[in-house]
Each structure stands twice: as C-alpha cells, then as structure tokens.
C-alpha cells in the first residue's frame, strides 16, 4: 500500500533518451518515489516521455509527466515549485539542464550521471549538486544500487 502523501514534490528531468539505462532508471526512481507517497513529476522531451508512456501505459510506476521546455518555463515564472530534483545527465547539455534546474529551484539537485563518459561529465559539474555517477549504458544495475544507497525516497 502507498504511504500517505507527503509535502514533497520531486522533479525527475530526463535528458536525451539515446542511452538505454535512462528510461529504466527514471521508471525505477519514479516508482520508489510514488510508493513513498511523494508527488513525482517527470519532465522530458517528447521522445523521452513516449518511452516512459509505452513502458508504463497505465501509470503504475509514474504520476505526472510534463514537457521539458514547459517545465523550465513554469519554474522560471514561479508557477511550479518542487522540493528536490533528479536530473539525468550523460552529455554537456545535461549539465546545462542540471545547472538551470539548480538555479531555478534553489532546492537540492541530484545529477544522476551515466554513459561511457560519466566520470568526465561529472568533473564538469561546478555548481552545488549531489552527484551519483556510473559509466553505465546498457546495464542499469550499478546505478540502481547507487540510488538505493542514496534512498532519496526516504529523505
């Protein structure tokens, strides 16, 4: 049974969906957040959202999904407030999105970094941000374990 709803609103920001582990990890994190009673919003490009929608057609694991650009606009205009964010990063653009989310929300941001260049990408992050990084591309298990260690759904 899901726990009682909390006051938290977690934002999960998807990057370019070309690296396979991202969709799986976003679904897993969204599921754990939802199970803990945390309002969870997934923001992504149309393709990234379609991958989630096809994998979870009845919304068993996910709650809300929003367009990425619309979400950025809503945050900048103060129309959306979140308590914590998880930005999925595997390239330079992902770093830019993480920095933008950190600035606009002024709340804790975790960069979940994956892909072959995860270590190099993590070194490029110079703004306040928690980093969870593994060079995972096809196998989501190392990052799943890292997420379980961090257990943001228990925070």
């Amino acid at each position: 049974m899901p726990e009682e709803p909390s006051q938290r609103t977690a934002l999960l920001v998807m990057g370019c969906p070309k690296v396979p582990v991202q969709t799986s990890l976003v679904l897993y994190l969204a599921h754990r957040m939802k199970k803990a009673g945390i309002r969870t919003i997934i923001a992504g490009t149309p393709s990234a959202r379609q991958l989630i929608r096809v994998a979870d057609p009845d919304g068993h694991y996910t709650m809300e999904m929003k367009d990425l650009d619309t979400t950025i606009a809503a945050l900048s205009e103060g129309k959306l407030t979140v308590t914590d964010s998880y930005v999925f990063v595997h390239n330079d653009a992902g770093i830019s999105y993480a920095a933008t989310i950190q600035f606009l929300t002024d709340r804790p941001v975790t960069a979940v970094i994956f892909g072959e260049e995860a270590e190099e990408v993590s070194h490029e992050i110079t703004f306040p941000c928690k980093i969870i990084a593994e060079p995972a591309t096809h196998n989501p298990m190392p990052l799943k374990h890292r997420l379980e260690e961090a257990a943001p759904w228990d925070a």
């Binding site: 606009a73 900048s76 653009a93 770093i95 830019s96 999105y97 920095a99 933008t100 600035f103 703004f127």
Partner: peptide, 11 residues
Amino acid sequence: RIFDLNIIGVP
C-alpha cells in the same frame, strides 16, 4: 527569457 525562450546553461 529571450524571444519567449528560456536560456538553459551553466552560469
């Protein structure tokens, strides 16, 4: 906001 776009980036 510029031309109804939000600039994304690292300050």
